[in-house]
Design a binder for these strands. Structure first.
Length: 597
RNA sequence: GGUCCGGUAGCUCAGUUGGAUAGAGCAACUGCCUUCUAAGCAGUAGGUCAUGGGUUCGAAUCCCGUCCGGAUCACCA
């Protein structure tokens, strides 16, 4: 039980004893006392004034009086404007610290054998262009959410659905075939995903030229878009692909192979991974057959041109296309098939899709469709909908070349971290290998923290010119604090000072120190809340607060120079716990922390 | 137009189920390194929480209206 729960309970008892009113302990409003007031925890008295028939001031005093008298760990109180501030015994806090230190996995639940299983889908790239900043947010969120749910006791299967088929893939294939002159990653030295992306852009360019030409010949824009030779040929290619045409399939396999090699490199660099990867080329047929099934059951209907639709007007939505007139499948069809295969493969208790909020409507529809098809889990799927990443000028647009490439960005972060370290003179005695590693960890830490600290549901702005800061509320700031603590702990070890989880509870410690312990004790609650709300940002902001507080302590107090051996030991244990929570918290964000920097 | 999301300091963001005088960082200005890492600490300045009502002991937070921004409503994914 944490301090808030304990206080809630004893306060409920007090209210019962004083006013004979039953209050659920969970309903007592307990909060951390603000800096400007005396005390550790604060109880909001207003809810009790009616029952007490007293002014908030008087009721607060009575409850405070009662608590101090009956609870040995509460040593003093004060009431200000209806807020009852309680001072907690220092020995209570030292006890808390002892218990935190003795638990190696403090705050992180270990997976149980009978744990429920959550499947989390994230990343989900198309194989026609390289990853960009938007994908980075998706990947970081997906990975972090997975770690957070594991820490809350879930079994997690991280999955990736690769969109490796469809008209857009055919576009880059066709462009390569027509204009590529046999270029390969080996021949040009271009990373595979970038090479394929290049031909996707070329297709778009040539296609536009054709449209323009047709329009100048007198065709309407709409007709020109439909009848341009390139788009017709791409559609041909898609049909050939679906019919298993050998040549098309070989080209497809070769180009996808290039893309996967490129993606793997980027994933590895970012430090994200997957337990199971699905490919839409392997799931879309399943989707088609489920749609046919639904058609037979009367859940869907076929139009005169042969296309298949779902009528969702009864649900307040539109009609939705499920199969095109030529029989080829669309995005929705594939998602239905993928969902089915997944539930065949795993005993999923909860399915989570990490997909941008531009697809809110899609998942609303998917949920209803799965339900109509008789999947009992259709209604309960979770669309973890996150906001877009925008540039100062607005949305990223690939056609205008304003897309921030994932590989470029990561490289830039790392080299900036490296330059900063050199500027600050942090690299004097280090090996080249260590300098590289710290630059990598810090550069990535800056990027990841920057993205994860903001509420995932909100759109965010990324300014590449200002790049990302290494001071203030940033990843490197947190990493730096960790490195400083580690440095102190190494020196303590050299001096042969042993840490212990049996610190003397009679030690005189400062308010700053007990506040730090209080913040440490909040970690469990924060992890739980981050899991419930799917919010890495809660973890990020918590770790920042903790670190900020620790730095104040570090500045104001001596650790190794403290003469009182027991106090020195206490501060070392406190520091060690902070380092551990920082490391654990950052690891929930997928961010490494260095031993020195 | 329908539906959904958002608007907090010059900029980027916090602000738990309604609680005290709305907080950080960046940018600007000022101090602090012969002692555990200054990627740090302390301070100054910066706010009509878009806006108008309502609910109540109390509203950035909940409800309604208005303004502004974004997403979506494709035989794209």
């Amino acid at each position: 039980m944490n301090i808030d729960q304990t206080i809630g309970m004893v306060t409920a008892d007090a209210v019962k004893a004083l006013y004979n009113v039953d209050v659920a302990s969970g309903e007592v409003q307990v909060q951390k006392t603000k800096k400007e007031f005396d005390g550790d925890v604060t109880i909001v008295v207003f809810p009790f004034v009616k029952a007490a028939r007293k002014s908030p001031e008087d009721a607060g005093k009575e409850i405070g009086e009662y608590l101090v008298k009956n609870q040995p760990f509460i040593v003093a109180y004060n009431v200000i404007k209806g807020f009852l501030n309680l001072v907690i015994n220092k020995s209570f806090w030292i006890g808390e610290l002892n218990s935190i230190y003795s638990n190696e996995h403090y705050g992180i639940k270990q997976p149980a054998d009978d744990a429920r299983l959550m499947m989390i889908e994230y990343s989900s790239p198309n194989t026609n262009k390289p990853l960009h900043l938007g994908h980075i947010r998706n990947n970081l969120l997906g990975y972090s959410i997975s770690e957070i749910q594991k820490a809350n006791g879930w079994k997690v299967v991280k999955t990736n659905i690769v969109n490796d088929r469809g008209i857009h893939i055919c576009k880059s294939m066709l462009a390569w075939k027509l204009f590529g002159n046999g270029e390969t990653p080996e021949s040009s030295g271009l990373k595979g995903d970038h090479l394929v992306g290049k031909y996707y852009v070329i297709f778009d360019k040539k296609y536009k030229e054709e449209i323009k030409q047709l329009m100048s010949d007198g065709m309407s824009e709409e007709d020109a878009k439909k009848n341009a030779p390139l788009i017709l040929e791409a559609q041909n290619m898609l049909r050939a692909w679906e019919n298993g045409d050998l040549e098309v399939r070989q080209l497809w396999e070769m180009m996808n192979g290039w893309v996967y090699a490129g993606f793997d490199e980027t994933y590895k660099k970012l430090g994200v991974d997957f337990d199971k990867i699905y490919y839409e080329s392997e799931t879309y047929l399943e989707g088609k057959s489920k749609v046919e099934e639904g058609l037979e059951k009367g859940a869907f209907y076929r139009r005169e041109d042969g296309s298949v639709w779902a009528d969702l007007t009864a649900e307040g939505l539109d009609e939705k296309l499920l199969l095109r007139a030529d029989g080829t499948s669309v995005y929705m069809t594939q998602d239905i098939g993928t969902a089915k295969l997944r539930y065949d493969d795993y005993p999923i208790d909860k399915m989570v899709y990490v997909v941008g909020n531009e697809q809110n409507y899609h998942f609303q529809v998917l949920s209803i469709l799965l339900d109509k098809l008789g999947f009992e889990w259709g209604k309960s799927l979770v669309h973890f909908s996150y906001g877009m990443v925008e540039l100062p000028e607005g949305k990223m647009k690939s056609r205008e070349g304003t897309v921030v490439d994932a590989d470029d960005l990561v490289e830039e972060m790392i080299s900036t971290a490296r330059e900063t370290a050199i500027e600050l003179g942090k690299v004097d005695n280090n090996s080249e290998e260590e300098i590289d590693n710290v630059a990598r960890v810090v550069g990535l830490g800056a990027l990841k923290y920057f993205i994860l600290k903001v509420d995932p549901r909100k759109n965010m702005t990324f300014n590449p010119k200002e790049s990302i800061d290494f001071n203030g509320n940033t990843g490197p700031f947190i990493q730096y604090t960790h490195a400083r603590i580690k440095s102190v702990l190494r020196k303590a070890e050299e001096q042969g000072i042993a840490l212990t989880s049996e610190l003397d509870k009679g030690l005189e410690i400062s308010d700053k120190e007990s506040t730090l312990i209080q913040t440490l004790s909040e970690f469990e609650t924060v992890v739980r809340q981050a899991g419930e709300e799917f919010s890495p940002a809660l973890i990020a902001n918590y770790v920042y607060d903790l670190v900020k507080e620790y730095n104040q302590f570090y500045h104001d107090f001596s650790i190794l120079r403290e003469e009182d051996m027991e106090l020195k030991r206490f501060r070392l244990v406190l520091s060690a716990c902070v380092a551990r929570v920082v490391k654990a918290g950052m690891s929930l964000l997928g961010i490494e922390v260095p031993e020195r920097m």
